[in-house]
Nucleic acid binder design. Structure first.
Lengths: 241, 241
DNA sequence: AAAAATATATATGTACTACATATTAGTAAT
DNA sequence: ATTACTAATATGTAGTACATATATATTTTT
């Protein structure tokens, strides 16, 4: 069920855990300064190398920062910060990539409540302005970029920074093999303009339905990939291993 | 806009990046074996300590595994694996926690399409069985656990492992200060049984609306915390019209 | 006396060396 | 052929030494 297990065999992993425990135990807050490396080494009874590695890992994850002379300080981690490295690694398997694609669709539809609640009249105007620029676009690249800008703006309306960050990452992930078919605009049931009109009403249910119709092509494309050729992909994966 | 920057000052961070580059450059795939630490040190022109730290970070992030004697092998990272550590650190600021709470609501509503598409008749029966056990529950703790079980099952129906993992983590995050008011069941507009009845129809739009109504109390509680009562009022207005 | 420049102390960053440990693989014994 | 043992090997841990940056103290300059 829950496959997120961590087996802490090495001293480093134990140290990492113990440092985190130590933090909560000592009631350290944000910007709190941790003991210096040599002290931590003494406290946990391991060498400085182990402490350094553990701290480095925590730094990689984004829960702390270290500065020369100043020492180690706790920071408030950006929840999706690490995902950048993971996605950039290019090691995500096909299943996970599919999962993330679905997640994006879910969020785009699911965020309706928050978009409607926080959308100002200026937001509407700004969205219209983007659509205007879209209509003037000549190249397909330009057109795609403006499409992204439109949706990114919707995310921004929610004022949910984590959501925007996540979307930013997913956007990068799906930038390459964008399954957008060439005639996607023709097949689109609701245009950006249509979305704006619905958004004007600030009715979440209506906006959800509208967004679902707008994304219809993406659902179709996704379905093609998952539905028919999923087995083939699996087999190709097995060839690698 | 995109606040997910990484400044690679230290050699370790550079090495980490270079190792990842080296991986893609050399066309390493899953289960590929990396050069041993001393070799990597020589290739990148840094000491073994630096390489070890870099590898340790990559291991912490979940893109590789190392075993004694065997060496370093690439694995397919679980996208939300690292989040476990971040969440467990207890260092997430209030804004991020609010963001994540909202994200959960978005997903719960946004996943309707996939729940409806993949829900089997046995799934319906299993959900009914959970509801049965809910009705027999005596303690509130038991009741809450079954509530969680019900929703977890809905996530599971999507067969989206990443989604389920993410939900699992969020569940842990919000387990403590669950803003669930005592009389939430009374205020709930649609019960679990109601959800199942709608799910039977396999109509995403209907299920979305039903889920939104079911989660109404959570939206209300969330709104209380955030302050502005914009979300509910807006929605209640819309319900009338 | 206030501001600027310099010096110093300090904690992290990097490197090298040595050895421990586990595990694969090869060898010997049954 | 199977089992038990041995040796080789790559990672894991530890200690030491020094580099580097920077906050703080000190001195110099105005």
């Amino acid at each position: 069920m829950h496959t997120l297990e961590t087996n802490d065999n090495s001293l480093v992993e134990v140290a990492q855990k113990k440092i985190l425990e130590y933090i909560t135990q000592q009631g350290y807050k944000l910007d709190s300064q941790l003991p210096k490396e040599t002290e931590l080494a003494e406290i946990l009874g391991v060498s400085r190398v182990v402490i350094r590695e553990a701290l480095s890992r925590l730094r990689a994850i984004g829960v702390l920062e270290t500065k020369r002379k100043k020492g180690t300080v706790l920071i408030s981690p950006k929840i999706f910060g690490v995902l950048k490295v993971i996605i950039a690694s290019g090691l995500l398997d096909n299943d996970t990539q599919r999962d993330l694609y679905e997640l994006r669709l879910m969020l785009e539809i699911g965020m309706a409540d928050f978009v409607c609640a926080k959308c100002t009249d200026t937001d509407i105007l700004n969205l219209l302005e983007i659509v205007n620029r879209e209509e003037l676009a000549t190249t397909t690249e330009e057109s795609i970029n403006l499409d992204i800008e439109f949706h990114s703006y919707l995310y921004a309306i929610t004022k949910n920074v984590s959501l925007s960050d996540f979307h930013f990452l997913l956007r990068r992930l799906f930038a390459l093999y964008s399954p957008r078919s060439k005639d996607y605009k023709v097949k689109q049931i609701i245009s950006h303009n249509g979305l704006i009109e619905v958004l004007r009403l600030r009715n979440p249910d209506a906006f959800r339905t509208a967004m679902r119709l707008h994304l219809n092509t993406q659902f179709v494309d996704h379905d093609k990939i998952v539905g028919t050729s999923s087995i083939i992909q699996k087999n190709e994966n097995n060839l690698i291993s």
